[in-house]
Amino acid sequence: MTGRETIESIVVVMVLIGTVLSLLSSLGFLRFPDVYTRSHAATKSITLGILFILLATFLYFLFVHDQVSVRLLLGIIFVFLTAPVTGHLIARSAYRYGVKPSGAQDELAADLEKAKKRASALDK
């Protein structure tokens, strides 16, 4: 029975690491000043935390039940693929929506104006 206890302790450590990561990144929601810095917290640490939890679940079902659960693998791949996409989408649409970044340096604003002018000139 000691083999099972070893597996369980590894799984619990991984789950706790993932949980603490996702809790800390939620704290980042409270502390950071604007959407863009918050999206840093949301995309990176939450993704890593959830990946830790899902990997722990995968290991648990692999070693305790001798069961390779393909659904879980699909879920891991899906989270891995979609998390950066949502981060990029939210940052982009927030900028187009008109939320100003809080820092001093902003090299995008002038270029976006230029591109819009070029596009409207093409329309006419």
Partner: peptide, 19 residues
Amino acid sequence: PSLPDRILALDSIGYNIIG
């Protein structure tokens, strides 16, 4: 304060529910 903040928070709620 703004709509994108809310969307970001909803997204992270989804990830936490997965966990």
